[in-house]
Design a protein around this nucleic acid. Sequence first.
DNA 1: CTGAAAGCGCTTACAG
DNA 2: CTGAAAGCGCTTACAG
Lengths: 333, 333
Amino acid sequence: MVNIADVAKAVGVSRSTVSYALSGNRPISRETRERIDAAIADLGFTVNAGARALATSQTMVLGLLLQFHDDEFPPAMLQYILAITTAARELGYDILMITDDHGAEAIQRITSSNMVDGVVLLDVTHEDPRLPALMKARQPAALVGLPRDTDELDVFDLDFEGAARLLVDHLHDLGHREIVLVSPPRHVFDRGGAYAWRFRDAALERAAQHGLTVHAHYGESQQPAVERSLNAILDAHAQATGVIVHNDASIAALPAVLRERGTVVPRDLSVVSLYPRNFGRTFLLPYTAVETSPDGLGREAVQQLVRRIVAPQGGPSVVRFIEPELTDRGSTA
Amino acid sequence: MVNIADVAKAVGVSRSTVSYALSGNRPISRETRERIDAAIADLGFTVNAGARALATSQTMVLGLLLQFHDDEFPPAMLQYILAITTAARELGYDILMITDDHGAEAIQRITSSNMVDGVVLLDVTHEDPRLPALMKARQPAALVGLPRDTDELDVFDLDFEGAARLLVDHLHDLGHREIVLVSPPRHVFDRGGAYAWRFRDAALERAAQHGLTVHAHYGESQQPAVERSLNAILDAHAQATGVIVHNDASIAALPAVLRERGTVVPRDLSVVSLYPRNFGRTFLLPYTAVETSPDGLGREAVQQLVRRIVAPQGGPSVVRFIEPELTDRGSTA
DNA sequence: CTGAAAGCGCTTACAG
DNA sequence: CTGAAAGCGCTTACAG
């Protein structure tokens, strides 16, 4: 292992000079700087991450906490992971992936041992059991998903209420009077996935204002139950002219289900939904939809987290709801 | 920050005694050990990861290198990530996720700075540009995917040749004489995804031995091209009685395509494929298939990597091909 | 069974 | 513009 002392010796300067040349934290004469750079390249020197972390109390690593629930939709989760990793890298940070079942313990483990400078929490629930551990940690955090109590927390999420209103309005404006809503599975509600009821309740409320009839149902998240439940729901409401699908697994399965039923969109049924734009690469999703943005959400969370790391007392906590945007793909009439 | 000196002071012993109590690397009297444990719990002490890494030259972190190509199938990739992270955790390691575009530089960066004790490489290609950086690294590696030159490398992959033979034999034994093969997209071949041609070439060879006619085609990886290409391929070979799909995106899209075409499996067409068992949770995949095993593959790779870390000179390099297993789901006749 | 001390490889006030 | 030295928080031979 070539270390900073080797470089210093090769150049004939002190270790501190090499260190300052590395960090730029004090002026170095052009000549010594160049000789130092040359020696570093020559010897193939790289700063030892552990030593630097020990000296500076900064690891340049962020923890990413996720839990792969059964109802999680793999493509969505992967998109979050990639977006967060990329955003972090752009700011000079690496990502420590934590998928432990016991998130609270994992947070305690990586923060108290100083393995990370901050933490990103995915899939935050209403009463997220990981939050107490987070509050005790020295390091700041950024959440994706809305907890009940947002005090002192930086939170990022889609504006699901707004998205629901946008979609209900869209159907209402087109003249639909009876619609079906396919929500996430019941156990998403049970475990506190606030996005599920935030969307549903806002949709129901808006529909009531419009005098619309809405049949709200839990969808499923795993095949073959997804198809079965979609068929059962559609069977039960043959007179409905529109459907709002707020359920990744269900919207992915919908095209095949509708083909099998001989239902033509939008002639026989209008369909609107809510999913990341690039799901369309993996699935055939020709539906008018509000675009959730795992990329944007992940990126904003990371940026805010890094801001906090750099300036721990940098302003009040933020709760940011991404504004929903509707993309019309002609699946409504 | 409470450190080991604080614990030592609280108990009235030396720092080394606390350290040895922590590691168990030398006998400690029961009484002192208990008082140390109590003090640790009391003060909420946790070993500082950076300091330990510096002292031991071990980080207990593994690097996981992946690149999300356009042709990558999200559910498959996520499964690898989760399997590897879980397997690592069971052995006491955390995962540093690296998704950089320039894998070689990233390897150089995390290994030379000693951020990781070893590296897992996903999606290894025939002439993988990351391998030179790997050979230069102090840390050992485990590859998932077969490179041209496996010297000194621990490599894990499915036995794609065996899988191809198994599927060809299966169709042949049922009396099929003309079959279609849907391979990964052309650019997977171009960039050196050896699994693509290993499967195809073995299938063609076996078919020739049997006197079967095989129409081999590149499939696509992104919608809507996936459906379009499947339809074109099926149109072109209406007389074929069986199809082998070696392409995640295509097999996921196949049920909808066949419904649309009015093709009933296996009455009109026999279908066999190759995909991870639990794709069936996300997609409706009622097809007889060889089960690829991202979980098993990832786990074996991690276990071997950790073995190497613990015993750097521990035996010759291994190239392990997982034996293919056929699950009959009745999609052939 | 336990302690004093060197060392891991950095950074950064302190001095000049 | 540069150097000598303390310190970050551990581990582990060396001694007893």
